[in-house]
Design a protein around this nucleic acid. Sequence first.
DNA 1: TCAAAAACTTTACGCGCGTAAATATTTTGT
DNA 2: ACAAAATATTTACGCGCGTAAAGTTTTTGA
Lengths: 339, 339
Amino acid sequence: MTKIKNMEEFATVSGISRPTVSKYFNDPSSVRPRTRARIEEALKEHDYRPNIYAVNQNRKLTKAVGIVVPLLVDPYFAEIARKLEKRCIDRGYRPTLFSAHGQTDQEVDVLESLRSLKPAGVLLAPLGRSSNHAVLEKFCCDVPTLIFDSSVGEFGLSFVGSDNRQFTTHITDYLCRTGEPPCFFEMKTPANPNAHRRRQAYLDAMAQFGQPAKVISIDGEGWEFEEIGRRGGHQAFEDGAFSTNTVLCSNDRLAIGLLTACYERGIQVGRGPNCSIRVAGQDGHPHSRFTCPPLTTISHDYDTVSRTAADSLFAAIDGDVTPWNSTRIEGKLTLRSSA
Amino acid sequence: MTKIKNMEEFATVSGISRPTVSKYFNDPSSVRPRTRARIEEALKEHDYRPNIYAVNQNRKLTKAVGIVVPLLVDPYFAEIARKLEKRCIDRGYRPTLFSAHGQTDQEVDVLESLRSLKPAGVLLAPLGRSSNHAVLEKFCCDVPTLIFDSSVGEFGLSFVGSDNRQFTTHITDYLCRTGEPPCFFEMKTPANPNAHRRRQAYLDAMAQFGQPAKVISIDGEGWEFEEIGRRGGHQAFEDGAFSTNTVLCSNDRLAIGLLTACYERGIQVGRGPNCSIRVAGQDGHPHSRFTCPPLTTISHDYDTVSRTAADSLFAAIDGDVTPWNSTRIEGKLTLRSSA
DNA sequence: TCAAAAACTTTACGCGCGTAAATATTTTGT
DNA sequence: ACAAAATATTTACGCGCGTAAAGTTTTTGA
């Protein structure tokens, strides 16, 4: 295992000319099998990898892919990012993970660093409401970008996300069929447009089912949804805002906070005999299985969303030109004991 | 805002020579104030940023820093990574985030890609028990690496983490003083050596307090601690393994799973009149505030750990040669209603 | 077997920038 | 105001690799 300085040296020890070695590293299948074998033989005995900086300097198209999420400490985003990362690697790209950490300026900074990476493409889940739309739009013009999770205008190549209307319609239907019709528990100024779609779907569904709708919009800014849900829950109880014994939360993290508020007030949650309230969430958050009670929710189809998003980007990189379009994946009801 | 191709062009439009411009980008304070002003003036009107690939090709020392965690979907690691990331940016480095996603081969892959990044330094939280020690050690020889969170031999520049002995001693003391002495709930084959330190500290503390110790080691492999804790909790209840009404869990995620098991068995947790068991965790996991009941735990000092780790690395990069040493930061007891 | 096709070698240039050396210009202190 | 010090300019080379062009060798197929 001798150390090799550069491709020239490696070409010498492997007995192949440098241009051919270069060709091999760009696509091992582009050289004759015997040549490939000789190179891979040499690769085992000599520790050499092309200098990515020198490689990328001369390539028009980098193999880098950026993955951007609004908040990596949210396991939902961490999970979807993980799946996207894997798909990139499997396709021979080198993914780099970024998080805006819930802040507008950081999202801008991330896009800025991403530019200098000269990536082949970017998978971007925007902050949403607090995104800098001008910066976002300009970025999408310059870099092949696929938007996922939350759509903010028809930017980028396309959009792939969950079907928020189906999510809410489906779980509202379930709740109506199995007990009192749900109130809708949400943030007054939600972080992204998915929340608006969910509220509207709730209102539509309740109208369709001939049930009285009740939306509880709680205060709170930022991305600490659990704490916002907890405080908002307490406030709602004090105000007597819950008009039925069933609450559908706009998302799981809000529901988790509401569960905490219920616990703190000694209110039992679930379908059991001593329970006085049912709580449901939306998202299928990785943590929802372990709340007390375990949270009934409607889950993102992580696999399909990540596959569709990644494949769309790869197709675009490979030259497939399709007009902007929006793909929305249905969710699956996950019944647990909270509702 | 005209587009500039390279530094040559930018030097021309700014009226400064290219070597001086180059000097400016490496350290803005290294040029005369008026020169700097002229460059920054030009920067406002012309959209130019040095090509990082060309820059890094010629620099012996890159400004890149790698941050590696074992499992990014765990909000504890996401949070500590976020803080480290910020500290790197504040010091002018370009951090890149990696996760081993709990898997040995992925950790190896991450270190491999990290090599080709030629980073100035790496902040590495290893998987622990399942790390490939040989690969890890070799990596640390080649790249300035500071190990944090979990120590696996005296690799790298130094180690910075939490004082697990203090964690467990402190919370064990609290539990003994406020009720029945705790049993210790842990995984039989824990992911990292911190767990062993905690068990030993528990045993030592109980001996010192003159209390009978009871360690419950549950089955389970991998990083899905909540599910392992839940299953293990059920098993422990069935076996009558809890010899007192108080359980100290080896970490918060295990505790969260145990809380779920308690809920599923109708066992009330906490200090209240109807409660039959107290449960405490260790880590101060971001989620521990929102469990039902909220989890009493001993919290990592995220700020001090991240600051100490980052500063140690930066010092080493700047040429400070200190012998390998281990810094362990104390935790703070966070009292909530679970114990 | 032999010509065409495919793959490889040799040679050479350029990418965008760091950096060194020699020279020219500005700033500083007195 | 003038010499010394600091800073900027000019010139030039090299980093490691992609890639093009022309020539050589190997493979393919009828």
